[in-house]
Design a protein around this nucleic acid. Structure first.
Length: 255
DNA sequence: TTGGCCTTTCCTGTTT
DNA sequence: AAAACAGGAAAGGCCA
């Protein structure tokens, strides 16, 4: 079923992305990000609409929320095959989900069915949901997924979508494969890092903020404001910054 | 509606 | 000379 639907109805342009591309990869490349229909006031949130009535945007946001909340591994998802409406999503069988997203597909299927039968309160109750999912799945699978997320805390799209610039920078540092060599640690223990590709970093931040006029000059001005608040400390070397006493989450042994 | 926070933008001057 | 740094000022955008 999946093949016939996924490669026709589901996928107006199958070649628009690599099926193995990770969630963050996909999100960070605007050329791959699906061109959704303009959002309207009544199109506010997937959680306010029954799954059967979700738009492709809703489905996309639901997938993000699932990855974020349940630490599913987005790199397992064949995102092209999940570029579908809610009605199409609801018509997918457990096997379709498994085929499309492997272990994560199993979880997604269970989460979707739970939302359909129990409503959104189920989704919001993380512990209960996790327990239910564990009941249905092999213990090792979920653990493997969680372990990968923990090893690379910014692997999910959520962390790279951090609302503050310093968190965005921190998360890029914590996941070097995501930053394209734009940033690197100079002294990991001391929190000292270097901006290697200033223009690339500015472009990434601009893409994150949907601002194509972002430059390193403007980004660095925002970074300099962090000196006042102790998020960053001054390092008297060009393109080198240091996390300050009020920055958190960058140390290896601290949350 | 408002005020606060976090940028963004622009600017001038300085340093590397 | 060019790139980066420094920091003031004002405006924008978001959120409670």
């Amino acid at each position: 079923m999946l093949d016939s639907v996924a490669h026709s109805t589901f996928l107006p342009s199958t070649s628009f992305c690599d099926p193995l591309m990770s969630w963050t990869d996909l999100f960070s490349h605007e050329e791959y990000y699906p061109a959704f229909e303009p959002q309207t006031a009544c199109d506010a949130s997937w959680a306010s609409v029954p799954p059967e009535h979700w738009t492709r945007r809703h489905v996309w946001e639901w997938l993000q929320a699932c990855c974020d909340q349940y630490r599913l591994d987005p790199s397992c998802l064949s995102l092209c095959h999940l570029n579908v409406s809610g009605l199409q999503l609801c018509s997918m069988t457990r096997e379709d989900f498994l085929e499309t997203a492997g272990v994560s597909g199993e979880h997604l299927y269970l989460i979707l069915q739970s939302i359909r039968t129990q409503g959104y309160s189920f989704f919001n109750d993380t512990e209960e949901t996790k327990a239910t999912i564990k009941d249905y799945t092999e213990p090792g699978c979920l653990r493997a997924s969680v372990t990968k997320s923990q090893a690379c805390p910014s692997h999910s799209r959520a962390s790279l979508q951090s609302s503050h610039l310093w968190e965005f920078v921190r998360d890029l540092l914590l996941c070097p494969e995501e930053n394209g060599g734009a940033l690197e640690w100079e002294d990991r223990q001391q929190g000292v890092f270097r901006v290697v590709k200033s223009d690339a970093l500015a472009r990434m931040w601009g893409r994150r903020k949907k601002n194509d006029r972002m430059t390193y000059e403007k980004l660095s001005r925002a970074l300099r404001y962090y000196y006042k608040t102790g998020i960053l400390e001054r390092v008297d070397r060009r393109l080198v910054y240091k996390f300050g006493r009020n920055a958190h989450g960058w140390q290896e042994d601290k949350p």
